[in-house]
Design a protein around this nucleic acid. Structure first.
Lengths: 341, 341
DNA sequence: CGTTTTTCCGTAAACGTTTACGACAACACA
DNA sequence: TGTGTTGTCGTAAACGTTTACGGAAAAACG
């Protein structure tokens, strides 16, 4: 059905070795036989069979991105990831690598699918997101010696893999600074499980900033739930009913903020008037919500490109001649002041 | 590094043929050699090299889902797809197939990536979404004889491929019926390009229902823009400034509705009070927005399972012994009445 | 012209599987 | 004992590539 390298060879009356060399741009092939091969390839619309290449070269020329469902949640925080993936894919494509996304059944932390990808050698490397403080996926990959990179930090696996993260700690701190400067002293924080590393980092910044301002951390103003709309909706009333009501809330996520604002609305509390609201990671939702939510915006697409770059540099087959490799980077989050605080 | 079938054979002092047969559950192998093979496989944690299998069998055991960016848009409407993909992947996994998602650079209609996947035989079949009225991807695949299925209908490619769609026409019609029953007669429609087939279907239902109620279709109440927040935001003021202002708006999409409601808010118009708002496809956003948006909810996860089923039945290698195959299905959208209309 | 170098190409092995085929032993049956 | 059947296994080819190796012809050089 599909044409193989043998068809080309037969068609041109030359050997398959020469065809392969011509196609792969090697030096030891005459300029005009190469020309003829390329033309024939186009004419018969030949494309190399990936299974054949992979088998011979021991490389699949593709990278897997694992989309990790949150525990207790059907959602994936995808709006966040799409621009990141766009950048990642663009940079990988420049090096001739395909990117594909693998999703797991919700709930299993993806360990199963990850093993499958790794053990059946479907990809040359994987990219992990939603890293956890202790992340068994990272342990597995390092132990196994399989190349990977992460979006987000973790305490697992030493420091020997490329990772890129956002400065959630600084964002948490900046959010508190901003609110304190505007006269707030009772500032609530609504976050997912501390197990998710960005939640942990956010809270570290939040706590440090409060202390710096001489404000005692009130556990009644901190609440945890699933990182989705339902989570924000269910948990927000709790902090609002604490005996000394907060005058500001920082949400760790746009979805939690949406749910939270819904709960506030039902209590007759208006963000931007009766209470200040800040969201740690900005998305289009924040911009088009009414009132528009103040948030911290990440440079997702450049981050995708950058992490691809770092991953490539760590792969023997793609490492350029350049010198020292950046292994870990933390990128800033830019405050976008809008109407909600 | 990774163990191959030869390692197993050497370790057990039997031939690779026997090992392969044991692993693949074929009949002509002694029960206890099979036992020993399986144990050894677990011990050396053997997993078959996919490239090897694919090459030999001429099948990759994987299905590609193409995530199609909208023209002029960086977004993908992902929140919509995730539950669908969950169902799709679950059913495919039951048949031993992997699902992966491939994304393209925004703007190129994915034709490039699609060709790549097909020609290098990275997948055994593909699933397309966001089908257009005339869809060159479908033409390409049918012409090429490559197996595929679509989420959404199209006029391209004849009727010879499995497809599953939502009844956007009925939803558009039902939305109008509901609004008319509540006394509205000036009903606006905000939609993306008619090229996107669901937009076209929605408008067909909208038009037919208006005519049925003896209401003339006013072009000033129909507006098109990109199917995202920005699109809804930009275009909504236009219909609100038409000389006879609408009393209701139907948005074709949650993102457009979010942007549109933002624009309404800036004009001092409150959904649910001053104007009725209905969204054709319901998402968590609709539920947690204030006011909660009335919308039409699809059964996305079952749809994913179902389309997988239909695709499998069309693949020679997986077709069960059952008789007639369903080729096209249209599923209903269920109205979820909330506060915005 | 003879020798060396260069240019170009063909041959064949290898990657890890699956599977058609045949072989051999054990067993049943006559 | 001979023949046929059954159960189990080994052998080897094949899938489509890439690539090390060697060889022939052409070019360069003395």
């Amino acid at each position: 059905m599909a044409s193989s390298i043998h068809d080309l060879a037969r068609h041109l009356n030359i050997s398959i070795g020469t065809v392969s060399r011509a196609l792969n741009g090697r030096a030891d092939v005459n300029a005009d036989t190469r020309q003829r091969v390329l033309e024939a390839a186009k004419k018969l619309n030949y494309a190399p069979n990936q299974s054949g290449r992979s088998l011979r070269q021991g490389a699949t020329h593709s990278i897997a991105f694992m989309l990790q469902p949150h525990p207790g949640d059907q959602q994936y925080g995808e709006p966040f990831f799409i621009p990141f993936l766009t950048g990642l894919q663009a940079r990988l494509a420049e090096s001739g690598l395909d990117l594909f996304v693998v999703m797991g059944a919700p709930g299993d932390y993806q360990q199963e699918r990850l093993r499958r990808v790794v053990e059946t050698r479907r990809a040359d490397a994987v990219v992990l997101a939603w890293t956890r403080r202790e992340d068994e996926r990272i342990d597995y990959l390092t132990e196994r010696g399989f190349p990977f990179a992460t979006l987000g930090r973790s305490r697992s696996g030493g420091k020997s893999y490329p990772s890129l993260d956002l400065d959630f700690e600084k964002a948490g701190s900046d959010a508190v600074d901003r609110l304190v400067a505007r006269g707030h002293r009772r500032i609530a924080a609504i976050r997912p499980s501390l197990d998710l590393n960005f939640g942990h980092l956010f809270m570290t910044g939040y706590r440090k900033a409060l202390r710096r301002h001489g404000i005692e951390v009130d556990p009644g103003l901190i609440a945890e739930d699933f990182i989705n709309e339902a989570g924000g909706y269910h948990v927000t009333p709790r902090v609002m009913l604490s005996k000394d009501r907060p005058t500001a809330i920082i949400f760790n996520n746009d979805a939690m903020a949406l749910g939270g604002c819904k709960a506030l609305a039902e209590m007759g509390i208006r963000p931007g008037h009766d209470i200040a609201v800040i969201v740690i990671v900005d998305t289009p939702l924040c911009r088009y919500f009414s009132p528009a939510l103040t948030g911290f915006r990440p440079a997702l697409e450049p981050m995708g490109r950058r992490l691809a770059e770092m991953l490539l540099a760590s792969l023997p087959a793609h490492a350029g001649p350049e010198g020292p490799r950046t292994i870990r980077e933390v990128w800033p989050l830019e405050l976008i002041a809008r109407e909600s605080d």
